[in-house]
C-alpha cells in the first residue's frame, strides 16, 4: 500500500449478481430490517383481524391521521441524525395552529393563514436552532424550555378556549390540502408521501443530507472539511418548526376546529417513528426510509390493536414492545458487521 502516481487505474472488479445482492443487503441492513418488521406486523394484523384489514376503510382512516405525526417525524429524523433532540415541536404545532385559526378568522384568507402558520412554525424552529447552535444550550434543555413556553403562550393567547373554523370547508385550498381523492384517499396523505420521497432523496443524495450526517458523526471533522456546522444545525431545527406548522395546518383543516392542546400527544409517536425506523440517538447515521415505515407502523398500530379486539390501552404496551424489539434488532445488526 504505497503511494504511487501511476496513471492507469485498474477498475474495481465487477461484482457478480449474488454478491451484488449481498452487498445491497449489507449496506441497507437497517432498511431491510424495518421492512421485515413491517411485513411481520401486517401479517399479524391480517391473521388476527382479517375482516378489518381486508377492508379499505381502515386504510382510509390511517391515511387521514398518519400525516400529522408523519411530516414532523420526517424533519425530526434530521435533528436526531445530528445527535440532537427536539421536545418542543408539538408545542410549536400548537402555536402554528392558533396562528392559522386566528388569522383565518381575522382575514378570511386561507392562503394567508397557511403562510403565517408556516412562517411562525419556522420562526419557532429557528429560535431553537439559534439557542442550540449559536448560544450553545444543549438541545434537550433548550427545547424543554421552549416546549413549556410555547404551550403556555398558546394557552394565554387562546385564553384556554377553542375556535370553531367551519368556514375553512368552503375554500378550494381546503380540498387541495385535506380533500379526498376518488376512493376516499385523503390529500394530506398524498402530500405526506410526496414530502417523504423528497426527504428521502435529500437524506441520501443531497449535499445537505450528507452534511447533516457529517455534523452528527464528527462535528470537528465536519468543520475542518469546510462544512458550516452551525448553519446545518439551525436549518434542521428550522425545518422541524416548519413541518410542525404544516402538521398544524393539516390537522386544523381536517377537523375545522382549534384546541389549545393541539399537538399534545404527538411527541412520543413521532419520535418513536424515528427510532423504530432505525435512526439512533447517537447521531451520524439513520434512515429516512426507516422513518417513513416507522410512521406507517405507528400510524396503523392503535387502530390495528383496537380492531383486533384488544382493548385500546394495550396500545402503549404494544408500542413499547415494538420499539424495544426494533432498537434491539438494530443494535445487534449494527454490532456484527
Amino acid at each position: 500500500m504505497a503511494v504511487s502516481v501511476s496513471q492507469h487505474a485498474p477498475a474495481s472488479p465487477a461484482p457478480e449478481r449474488g454478491e451484488k445482492v449481498m452487498r445491497f443487503v449489507r449496506q441497507n441492513r437497517i432498511e431491510v430490517a424495518i421492512t421485515v418488521i413491517f411485513a411481520i406486523l401486517y401479517a399479524i394484523f391480517l391473521i388476527g383481524a382479517p375482516e378489518v384489514y381486508t377492508q379499505f376503510g381502515i386504510y382510509r382512516s390511517f391515511m387521514s391521521t398518519m400525516p400529522y405525526i408523519g411530516v414532523m417525524a420526517l424533519a425530526a429524523t434530521f435533528v436526531v441524525t445530528l445527535g440532537e433532540v427536539d421536545l418542543s415541536f408539538p408545542s410549536v404545532m400548537g402555536v402554528s395552529a392558533w396562528v392559522f385559526g386566528a388569522s383565518f378568522v381575522a382575514t378570511g384568507s386561507y392562503p394567508l393563514a397557511v403562510v403565517l402558520a408556516l412562517a411562525v412554525g419556522a420562526a419557532c424552529g429557528l429560535l431553537n436552532g439559534l439557542l442550540i447552535a449559536r448560544v450553545g444550550v444543549p438541545s434537550i434543555v433548550a427545547t424543554i424550555g421552549t416546549m413549556f413556553f410555547w404551550r403556555g403562550f398558546v394557552n394565554v393567547l387562546a385564553e384556554g378556549r377553542g375556535m370553531a373554523l367551519v368556514d375553512l370547508r368552503g375554500s378550494a385550498w381546503h380540498s387541495v390540502l385535506v380533500g379526498r381523492l376518488p376512493g376516499g384517499i385523503p390529500m394530506q396523505f398524498v402530500w405526506f408521501i410526496l414530502l417523504a420521497l423528497l426527504f428521502m432523496a435529500i437524506y441520501r443524495r443531497h449535499v445537505f443530507g450528507s452534511h447533516v450526517l457529517f455534523v452528527g458523526d464528527n462535528e470537528e471533522s465536519a468543520h475542518m472539511m469546510g462544512i458550516k456546522v452551525m448553519r446545518v444545525k439551525v436549518i434542521c431545527f428550522t425545518l422541524l418548526g416548519l413541518m410542525s406548522g404544516l402538521a398544524a395546518i393539516f390537522l386544523v383543516s381536517e377537523v375545522t376546529y382549534f384546541w389549545p392542546t393541539t399537538g399534545d400527544g404527538f411527541l412520543l409517536p413521532a419520535l418513536a417513528a424515528v427510532f423504530i425506523g432505525g435512526t439512533p440517538v447517537f447521531g451520524g447515521r439513520g434512515s429516512m426510509y426507516g422513518t417513513v415505515i416507522g410512521v406507517l407502523i405507528i400510524g396503523s398500530l392503535e387502530a390495528g390493536v383496537v380492531a383486533m379486539g384488544i382493548e385500546g390501552f394495550y396500545t402503549q404496551l404494544i408500542y413499547g414492545l415494538l420499539i424495544t424489539i426494533a432498537v434491539t434488532v438494530y443494535a445487534v445488526i449494527m454490532r456484527r458487521k
Binding site: L213, D217, N218, S221
Partner: peptide, 8 residues
Amino acid sequence: ERALADQQ
C-alpha cells in the same frame, strides 16, 4: 483524529 467521520 479530526480528519474523517467514522460512520460515513
